[in-house]
Amino acid sequence: MNEKPDFVWENLEVGMTIGERSLTVTQAMVDAHCDAVGAKREWYQGDSPAGGAIAPPMIFINDLLAIYDANYKRFGTIHAKLGYRFHRPVRVGETVHQKVTVTDLYVKREKGWIVSEFAVTNEAGELLLTSSHTSVLSLTRRHEKDD
């Protein structure tokens, strides 16, 4: 079994796909998320304007990191910025496809930074949401180049 590569500057490049996966959004997933973040709304349990239960906007709050960790050995990355664009509701019971790509890598204040895009589509290929995540790769590693 091949060991996963370290999640470090040398193993990353702009444009690369970090990983992708498909999963079905279940009511149990939504309930667990709501409990963890304290989200309470009838839409997340039953009827909604979409015609059935939907997931909270931040349902995939950890999925980018889960995809990182499925493909790399990661320690100490710190989120600095987060952006989301919501296009369609995520319906309970639907299967979605998630993909993480690297959109930028740069050095700032002697730290290595990564910008990743997380995109989620439904089975029809429609875009449900996109998010952009900016993280410092490590607080303890010094990078020479500074911009």
Binding site: I54, L82, F86
Partner: peptide
């Protein structure tokens, strides 16, 4: 995001945006 849904409703689910540092 939950505050936004409370006030912007389903429109936040289908066309919302958030950018934070």
């Amino acid at each position: 995001t939950e505050l936004m849904v409370d006030h912007l409703g389903f429109g936040f689910i289908t066309g919302g945006e958030i950018d934070v540092s």
